[in-house]
């Protein structure tokens, strides 16, 4: 008997539904483009920004390339609904923060806008303002295993009685100075998952978090493109992805 089956027998299975998802990987965005990526036909582009033309100009102007990617994936899933949001990122707005630190080093006055938007919850804050979301909005630091951090927090929120929430992961390439300490993400990448508590009304892909001693997982500081394996199993509509030490995410597993 595997650990998952044992856990299930003990009544501890952590199950949820991925009702909808979207991801943006530097130009790879729509389902057909992701299928092409999966078959090796499409790779991320350089110097491309995610489309956020659905926002009024005054709301667009403060968005960084990274936050545009988040908005591009999250906004269509929100559909003007007021549901909780959970943002999870290892490095957050690394470029904006690095530029600010350079100004500090030069003893220059800091831009109030850049300062306000460099904090880890700035993106989810902007999202909640633009989307008029008054439900709780959380920002998590991903650490070594952002998928585990984000998914565990998300299922915890669902277990507490929330019917639906939006879980977001996002990263951007790191400034060169940080690269001795961490591998840099290959390109800007954002993933939005609309998660629903299992029940009669829920639709989508059945997902579960299962403990497994055999999973091998690399730290996001070593393998920073951690979102892509999740996108791959979502595209394939079945499979499993290691998310942390001793934990895996299974999609449509029986």
């Amino acid at each position: 008997m595997g650990d998952g089956a044992l856990l299930h027998k003990c009544g501890l299975s952590i199950e949820f539904i991925v009702s909808e998802w979207r991801a943006w990987y530097s130009g790879i965005s729509e389902p057909a483009e992701w299928q092409s990526w999966r078959n090796g036909g499409m790779t991320p582009k350089e110097n491309i920004q995610a489309d956020v033309s659905f926002l009024p100009a005054m709301q667009r102007r403060r968005l960084s390339p990274l936050s545009k990617a988040v908005f591009n994936t999250a906004y269509p899933l929100l559909q003007q609904r007021d549901i909780p949001m959970l943002c999870c990122s290892v490095h957050g707005e690394a470029k904006r923060t690095y530029a600010l630190l350079q100004d500090v080093a030069k003893e220059e006055d800091l831009s109030p806008t850049a300062f306000g938007l460099s904090v880890h919850n700035a993106i989810v804050g902007q999202l909640s303002i633009a989307g008029k979301v008054r439900s709780p909005a959380l920002a998590l630091a991903g650490g070594d295993f952002p998928l585990q951090a984000g998914l565990m927090e998300a299922v915890g929120i669902l277990q507490e009685g929330t019917k639906q929430l939006l879980l977001l992961f996002y990263e951007e390439p790191l400034p060169e100075m940080y690269q001795p300490s961490s591998e840099s993400p290959s390109a800007i990448c954002a993933t939005a998952l609309l998660l629903t508590k299992p029940g009669e009304e829920s639709y989508g892909l059945r997902a579960s978090l299962l403990p497994s001693k055999k999973v091998k997982v690399q730290s996001a500081f070593k393998a920073p493109d951690y979102q892509l394996p999740i996108v791959r199993v979502l595209l394939e509509k079945s499979g499993s992805v290691p998310v942390g030490l001793g934990w895996e995410l299974c999609i449509n597993a029986d």
Partner: peptide, 17 residues
């Protein structure tokens, strides 16, 4: 124009500079 309080700070800084 519809500017907000962060714009006021940013504009003030730019004028000072």
């Amino acid at each position: 124009l519809g500017l907000d309080s962060i714009d006021a700070l940013e504009l003030g800084l730019a004028l000072q500079k």
